[in-house]
């Protein structure tokens, strides 16, 4: 089994563990092993959020740290940057759990997508891998999360729904264009950079949505 084949079944491995062949690849490949370790860490950390009314800053710091260690996000600018203000604002509101879950889902999605992308871009000598970008499963998850985010905005600030919808379409178009370019030329590092920035922009949109406190 090579890295490309392994990555195709990665979501299943994260969820339910791999078969002997996949486990063997995991043991022999440091890159895939690191990737799985990171994703499991993020998933485990995310679970901690569910029973809490007010997630500990440690959780956000942990997730952020994992992404930063991977070089997937840039350092924070000020204290409001990463820990969604929603966690503070919403902590006294009855549906904080839904907001936290949505934030976690979004973070997981971005982490998986970006880590996947980064993993692909670091293995450019393997054409079969470099040409591959996050595909069906993450895309479906993205659609679902997008819908949840828009529902969240609609609930909190109906007047801003159109703005968020429009901007979501814009940033998804950015992601699509960057992906398309990478498929055309996997060695175009500028396109890879655009894709990462596009995900950053999408993360910003989710963060801002979470920070809605119009109730």
């Amino acid at each position: 089994m090579n890295c490309a084949e392994f990555q195709e079944v990665l979501p299943d491995i994260i969820e339910s563990g791999g078969n002997p062949e996949e486990e063997a690849h995991l043991k022999s490949c440091a890159v895939c092993s690191d990737l799985v370790q990171d994703l499991r860490y993020i998933a485990d950390t995310a679970k901690l959020l569910l029973p809490m009314r007010d997630p500990s800053p440690r959780v956000w710091t942990g997730i952020r740290g994992a992404l930063q260690r991977e070089g997937l996000v840039r350092p924070l600018a000020g204290t409001v940057r990463f820990r969604p203000q929603a966690a503070a604002v919403l902590s006294q509101r009855r549906w904080v759990r839904g907001g936290s879950m949505l934030a976690v889902a979004a973070l997981l999605l971005f982490a998986i997508g970006i880590i996947w992308l980064r993993n692909n871009s670091t293995r450019q000598p393997q054409p079969a891998v470099t040409a591959r970008v996050p595909a069906a499963a993450p895309a479906a998850a993205a659609d679902d999360d997008d819908a949840q985010m828009l529902n969240f905005v609609q609930h909190k600030s109906p007047a801003l729904l159109a703005t968020y919808r429009e901007n979501l379409e814009s940033v998804n178009a950015y992601i699509r264009d960057a992906r398309r370019r990478i498929e055309q030329d996997p060695n175009d590092m500028g396109a890879h950079d655009h894709l990462i920035r596009a995900y950053d922009e999408k993360a910003l949109l989710y963060e801002m949505a979470m920070a809605r406190s119009g109730e």
């Binding site: 600018a77 429009e166 801002m208």
Partner: peptide, 9 residues
């Protein structure tokens, strides 16, 4: 100064 600005639209 550090100036950090974030907006949607």
């Amino acid at each position: 100064a550090h100036v950090h600005v974030r907006t949607i639209s």
